[in-house]
């Protein structure tokens, strides 16, 4: 585990769709490095032949029958829409302008 660079912070922020100011990039780099240093301790644990554990429940095959249930009224769907146009959610242009 190596330390995280500012470039990596910018790359990760881009993946996470978070705009960060230059100052925030500095601070983020510093605090993430502190946390990653703390995380170093995991390296000392021998995990050879250990199965990863993603779930805390011993369940499988939880399924529903293929039955149609009522959808919600469009007014409810649009209740929190930041920008609604005639029953659609409107978003700014998807492709950046050249």
């Amino acid at each position: 585990m190596s330390s995280i660079t500012k470039e990596t912070v910018c790359y990760v922020a881009d993946l996470a769709r978070l705009y960060l100011t230059d100052e925030e990039i500095e601070q983020m780099t510093e605090s993430l490095n502190k946390i990653l240093e703390f995380e170093e301790q995991l390296n000392s644990v021998n995990t050879d032949n250990v199965e990863p554990m993603a779930h805390a429940v011993p369940l499988n095959n939880v399924m529903r029958e293929d039955v149609v249930e009522e959808s919600m009224p469009i007014r409810e769907a649009m209740l929190n829409a930041p920008d609604e146009v005639e029953g659609f959610f409107r978003v700014p242009r998807i492709i950046e302008k050249d």
């Binding site: 912070v9 769709r17 978070l18 983020m28 946390i35 978003v91 700014p92 242009r93 950046e96």
Partner: peptide
């Protein structure tokens, strides 16, 4: 554009601790 909107929406809407954890988890 949409990407810019996403980035600023999330930058404005989340506080510093939430951002830190999103960054750590994404990483």
């Amino acid at each position: 554009d949409s990407v810019t909107m996403f980035k600023h929406t999330r930058a404005e809407g989340f506080g510093p601790e939430v951002k830190r954890r999103i960054m750590l988890g994404t990483y």
